[in-house]
């Protein structure tokens, strides 16, 4: 457990920097934007206590907020996502439950389990983020379209990043 600490600290800073310096500048057909930094919350260990999950979610969302001048928006979306994580993990648990010493990544539980699990969390995050950003339901369908398109984009990036992680864990 404790040897995972440096890895997550690295993940936190790496994902924040990638998000702020690279992904926030990507524009795909107008205003579709991927938010890869949520991967940090998605891949936290199963044993992470609830309060720590929420605090970390707030910290990661808030650091993105400070860089992109959107105080509170990312923080609230990420905290909401973190709140649903334990419920979704329970619902998706395999028959013999999660093995001790494993973390929720594609390397341990395979692409089909991981992508379904990640997609639901990413969708929750994007849904709340985009609607808080617009702060009204007058443009409901155009906002929903942005949510869907951005979710797909984020999922592609998460999938690619997991392919990297896979070869790393095998070597260990």
């Amino acid at each position: 457990m404790i040897n995972l600490l440096p890895r997550y600290i690295f993940n936190f800073f790496f994902l924040t920097l990638i998000q702020v310096l690279v992904l926030n500048n990507i524009q795909f057909s107008g205003f579709v934007n991927p938010y890869l930094y949520v991967l940090f919350i998605i891949t936290l260990p199963f044993e992470t206590p609830g309060w720590l999950l929420l605090v970390l979610a707030f910290a990661s969302g808030f650091s993105i907020d400070i860089f992109s001048n959107t105080l509170g928006m990312h923080a609230s979306a990420t905290v909401l996502m973190a709140f649903f994580r334990p419920t979704i993990l329970r619902a998706f648990a395999p028959r013999d439950d999660y093995q001790p010493g494993t973390i929720p990544t594609m390397a341990y539980y395979g692409p089909s389990w991981f992508l379904r699990y990640a997609l639901i969390l990413v969708f929750i995050h994007h849904l709340s983020l985009f609607f808080i950003e617009v702060f009204s339901i007058t443009h409901f369908f155009s906002t929903l379209w942005r949510v869907l398109a951005s979710s797909v984009f984020t999922m592609i990036l998460i999938f690619l990043s997991q392919l990297f992680g896979r070869s790393k864990t095998k070597g260990r």
Binding site: G50, L54, L71, S76, I132
Partner: peptide, 20 residues
Amino acid sequence: HFTILFVLIELISLLFVINY
């Protein structure tokens, strides 16, 4: 405590958004 903490943090975040 999990739910209460969630509501608390979420409220703080939304307060940030509104007092932007």
